[in-house]
Simulated assay, not measured.
Amino acid sequence: MFNIGGGEFVLLGVLALLLFGPEQLPKAAQQVGRVLRQLRKMADSAKDDLREGLGPEFKDFDVQDLNPKRFVQKHFWEAEDDEEEGARRPASQLNGKRPPFDDEAT
């Protein structure tokens, strides 16, 4: 999600030390950890409630499928059967083979 390098991490640590001080920093870190655990627990609970509410027809439903990038990738690039597999994969996954092309089609 975030790409934080070593330098940025050290800068955030120094900034937190200056803001909270050495006495309050462990307490602030505990509170942040507690809040993150609660948020994760709430998100997992919401996912479970959504799956339960959708019923058994959507047992393989994944919330990540709602991401537009993943939706397009799943529905346009994944092959349904072996015959169409080469025609549906992007050019980067065709192992050097060019997909069929018709000059008169466009």
Rank of each mutant, 00 (worst) to 15 (best):
M1C: 09
F2P: 06
I4K: 10
I4W: 09
G5D: 15
G6S: 14
G7W: 06
E8W: 06
E8R: 15
F9C: 11
F9P: 03
L12C: 07
G13Y: 14
G13C: 15
G13R: 14
L15S: 14
A16I: 01
L17W: 01
F20G: 00
P22T: 07
P22V: 08
P22R: 03
E23S: 09
Q24P: 00
K27G: 07
K27R: 15
K27L: 15
A28Q: 10
Q31T: 11
V32D: 04
V32S: 08
G33N: 11
G33A: 07
G33R: 05
G33I: 05
G33E: 03
R34V: 08
R37C: 06
Q38W: 14
L39K: 10
K41E: 12
A43V: 07
A43W: 05
A43H: 05
D44P: 01
D44S: 08
A46G: 05
L50W: 04
E52V: 11
E52F: 11
G55I: 01
P56V: 13
F58T: 02
F58M: 13
D60S: 13
F61W: 13
F61Y: 13
F61L: 09
D62V: 11
V63G: 07
V63D: 06
Q64M: 08
L66A: 02
L66R: 02
N67K: 04
N67V: 03
K69Y: 15
Q73C: 04
Q73G: 03
K74D: 07
H75T: 15
F76T: 08
F76C: 08
E78P: 01
E78G: 01
A87I: 07
A87K: 04
R88W: 04
R88E: 03
R88K: 14
P90T: 06
S92W: 14
Q93R: 14
L94P: 06
L94N: 09
G96L: 03
K97V: 13
R98N: 07
P99T: 01
F101P: 00
D102I: 00
D103I: 00
A105W: 00
